[in-house]
């Protein structure tokens, strides 16, 4: 059990850490409410001053001739939805990665998904001079997916199958290689750097519902897999031997978990570019409140991850009006201190 805490050798009595089931059930609608509230805040806020009544009218009684309604419907709503979906997907992907590798510092980046996506996009911009969010998304998803498969393949080679250590090493090696190549291309070709530098930070600005629609099926499958696998990941988290002893087919669980991570993180990077910290920090925050059972960690990560990213996006727009800070900057600015506070608290115990 203790493996999910930041210091694995420190014993945390799990029985006292688990909140009662009724509280956990009650918490879900509260978190859902928080997410909806954050999304409403995001929709109500922007460069144009639009009063609350108009915002509400735009949602319930949309008039395509009205510029304010169009701003709400075609600019702000897709943005809020993108942030919510990407936040949810990243947090869940991070939670699964941490459970799968029994590494508290794991996040989707460990499978090389972000590095692979960045390399594919930068390479495509350089070679084919593509330049639209729609085509970026296709290359990002393909690049992230292929890299994850390569990492997983390399990490599974040899006897013993995919062990956490081998996966971590393979991921680190391939990520390092791809990141250097990405940097090399950008240094050689200034134009490419200019084109992709905002995408590379991670942003949810300018996304539309068409793009979200393309991403949605993958997201639904990924989140569905994660919810179904919650029980098995909890068991797997106890160690391969115990899981096997309890009659689990660990190879299949690991493979399906990896597929879920690739779908979730791949779609996230396709929609919003590489956004760090959400996948690392949110599962820890969630575990802090709901304990170590992945049947609860997954849905809570979904809701809290979504809320977190939506709020980061709102704050990024408030602090630098009328310009904005990309959401990828904000997640690190806010996620960093939260993570340090969490580590300090755990060390003290």
């Amino acid at each position: 059990m203790a493996t999910s805490s930041i210091l694995p050798n420190r014993q945390v009595p799990p029985a006292t850490r688990l909140p009662p089931r009724s509280l956990l059930v009650l918490g879900l609608p509260i978190c859902l409410g928080a997410l909806l509230l954050a999304m409403l805040t995001s929709i109500a806020f922007g460069a144009a001053e639009i009063n609350a009544t108009t915002v509400w009218q735009a949602i319930v009684n949309f008039n395509p001739e009205n510029t304010n309604h169009l701003i709400i419907q075609t600019l702000r709503m897709p943005r809020a939805v993108t942030a919510a979906l990407v936040g949810a997907a990243l947090a869940v992907a991070g939670a699964i990665m941490q459970g799968l590798t029994r590494n508290p510092l794991a996040d989707p980046g460990l499978l090389g998904i972000e590095a692979g996506a960045a390399f594919a996009v930068v390479g495509a911009v350089f070679l084919f001079q593509i330049n639209s969010l729609g085509t970026y998304a296709v290359f990002a998803f393909a690049g992230g997916g292929l890299t994850a498969i390569a990492v997983y393949g390399l990490g599974s080679a040899g006897h013993g199958g995919p062990t956490p250590l081998k996966l971590t090493l393979a991921g680190a090696a391939i990520s390092a290689l791809l990141s250097s190549l990405t940097t090399a291309i950008m240094l050689f070709n200034q134009r490419t750097l200019e084109e992709v530098r905002f995408w590379l930070v991670g942003s949810v600005a300018g996304r539309d519902f068409a793009l979200i629609g393309q991403a949605l099926p993958y997201l639904v499958i990924g989140l569905g897999l994660a919810l179904v696998l919650g029980r098995q990941i909890t068991t797997l988290n106890l160690g391969d031997d115990i899981a096997k002893g309890l009659g689990q087919s660990t190879v299949w669980i690991k493979t399906f978990s990896a597929i879920a991570v690739v779908l979730l993180a791949g779609v996230s990077v396709a929609l919003a570019g590489p956004i760090g910290f959400v996948g690392l920090v949110i599962p820890h925050v969630v575990r802090f409140f709901v304990g170590v059972d992945y049947r609860w960690i997954v849905p809570y990560s979904m809701l809290i991850g979504g809320t977190f990213l939506v709020l980061c996006d709102v704050i990024g727009r408030v602090v630098a009006r009328p310009s904005e800070l990309a959401v990828g900057v904000m997640t690190a600015l806010i996620g960093g201190p939260v993570f340090i506070a969490l580590v300090r608290w755990k060390v003290k115990r």
Binding site: A48, E49, T67, I71, Q129, S132, G206, P322, S323
Partner: peptide, 30 residues
């Protein structure tokens, strides 16, 4: 500095001058 489409709406311009490169035609279309 970077602004989004909403930022342009609030300025209520009577005319818009955009500069871009031929490689940016995809973005222009979007």
């Amino acid at each position: 500095f970077l602004v989004d489409l909403e930022g342009i709406v609030t300025l209520k311009p009577e005319a818009i001058v955009v500069t871009c490169s031929p490689e940016d035609r995809g973005l222009w279309g979007e």
